[in-house]
Each structure stands twice: as C-alpha cells, then as structure tokens.
C-alpha cells in the first residue's frame, strides 16, 4: 500500500535515512522499531508527506507523494490519519470539536450526523462522555485516545502512530496498544506504528521493521523477529548496552582530556 524506494533524508551533514526501502501492507499493523536517532520518526514524516525526501521516493498506492500537487495531496490526506507523539489536539477546541474537526472542515454533513460519528469513535476508544473537556484537562493517555478518535473520524485507509506509548504509564500504554490492534483488525484499517517500545511492538505487530542508523537491519513477522538470532536484533530486543550496536563512547580517552584541561 505504501512503499519507499531508496529513501534518503539528510539534515545538513546528518544522514537520518540511508537508502531505506520498506513496504507497508494493507490491513496490517506494521511496527517500525528503532532506538532514539534511528530515523524512525523521520521515516514516518516521509510516509505521511509531512516532510520531503532528499533522494528517493515514497509511493502511496501508485502515486509518488513528492510529485503530487498540493490539492491532490490534501485529497490523499483524507485517506490518512495521524496520532502524534504529544497528541497535538488543537488546544483552543474541546474534545468534541477536536474529533469533529476534519468533518467540520471537509464535509457538509449535518451536525446530527457528525455528532453520531463523533460519539461512535469516542466510544471505540472509551472516551465517550468527555466531549466537553478541553485538551488541557486530559491526561496523556486520554489525550492520545482522543487523538486516535480524531485520526480515524473520516474512516481513513491508513493511520500513522508516532510513539503512541511514550510518556504513558504501563496501563495507559497497554490500553492504547490494545486499541490500535483491535481497531485495525475490526475496521480493516492499516496501521503504521513507530515506537521504541519492544514489548508493545511485538505484541501487536503483524510486521516489524527494525531500523538502525537510517537503515533497515531486520524485517519480518513479530515471532520471527522475537526469535531472531541476528546479534543486533537480539541486543535491541533484550536492551543490552553493549553488542554489535556500539555504546557511543567519547572518542578520546578520559585521562587525555583531563590532562589537556590542566595544560
């Protein structure tokens, strides 16, 4: 459904993505795993056309996202939803208006219809009854669930999740990951989840992509990844500081630096 070809993204001299080729399959939960700075958020911004690649291309269906007119891109966005790391609810609007926002903007639906749709989506994420609260009155987990409801209000084909569990307590994180899995399966939606939360990832993923320094180092079904013998994968999943993925140490020996200061 979404495919990248030789994707490269540079920020100045820093290469965030280095010839990354991935494929997101329909009706699946694809989890992009990686440590901080592995380029996974950059990759997500490429997939959703929030950022443009330096080289290479992103194909949404049979359309190259970088080549689209802004009009066509906005049409495609109707088929995408996104749940941001910090939820990104519009803080001037209450929960109801936030969830209804895409419909208010792009549809001529009757308010009673919109109301029903909002209720339905809020019910799915367990947030019905909180319509009148403002974003500042919500906890992190609640805000995320509202953001989820907003992302799927127009029944998109694909929903992107940026670090859906970061900053949440284990129970809230569990609720959110379960919701992602259940709703994807129930509604024939495609989900792309970017996270460094190995536990959650392996639990809900149909397909896992492991990213390191902008490159795909392992890819496959969750079970296969969990039982992989590739030392890099093992190190990441078990969370060991040392291994083939080096612990980043200072380049000069400590005593040399100390001596230099004296001189």
């Amino acid at each position: 459904m979404i495919r990248t070809e030789g994707l490269v993204r540079q920020f100045g001299d820093v290469v965030a993505l280095d010839h990354t080729n991935i494929e997101i399959k329909k009706d699946q939960v694809t989890v992009i795993l990686g440590g901080s700075g592995s380029g996974k958020t950059t990759l997500l911004r490429m997939l959703s056309a929030l950022d443009a690649p330096t080289h290479g291309s992103v194909w949404f269906g049979d359309e190259d996202l970088a080549q689209l007119s802004s009009k066509r891109l906005y049409e495609l966005r109707g088929k995408m939803g996104m749940v941001f790391q910090y939820s990104a609810l519009l803080n001037s609007l209450n929960v109801y208006d936030n969830v209804a926002f895409p419909l208010h903007e792009h549809s001529d639906l009757d308010e009673s219809v919109i109301q029903t749709m909002v209720q339905m989506k809020l019910e799915q994420v367990g947030m019905r009854g909180f319509e009148q609260l403002m974003p500042s009155e919500l906890s992190g987990g609640m805000a995320k669930r509202v953001a989820f409801a907003r992302a799927m209000i127009a029944d998109p084909d694909v929903v992107f999740f940026d670090e859906p569990t970061s900053g949440l307590d284990p129970i809230s994180a569990g609720i959110v990951t379960t919701l992602i899995h259940d709703i994807t399966k129930k509604t024939h939606m495609t989900s792309v989840v970017v996270t460094h939360d190995v536990h959650a990832a392996l639990e809900i993923a149909d397909h896992v992509i492991l990213l390191w320094q902008g490159k795909v180092i392992a890819e496959g079904q969750a079970d296969a990844i969990a039982q992989s013998e590739d030392p890099r994968v093992v190190q990441f999943i078990q969370g060991r500081p040392d291994g083939p993925i080096p612990f980043s140490r200072s380049k000069t020996p400590y005593h040399e630096d100390l001596l230099r200061v004296r001189l």
């Binding site: 049409e75 966005r77 995408m80 996104m82 790391q85 910090y86 990104a88 519009l90 803080n91 895409p102």
Partner: peptide, 14 residues
C-alpha cells in the same frame, strides 16, 4: 512544538 501545525497539515487544513 506540540505538533498542532503538523496535525492541521495531516487533516488537510493548510
């Protein structure tokens, strides 16, 4: 900072 501009962009609102 909070991603609201990106969120608008994703909801096809410039």
């Amino acid at each position: 900072v909070t991603g609201q501009l990106d969120a608008l962009e994703m909801m096809a609102v410039n």
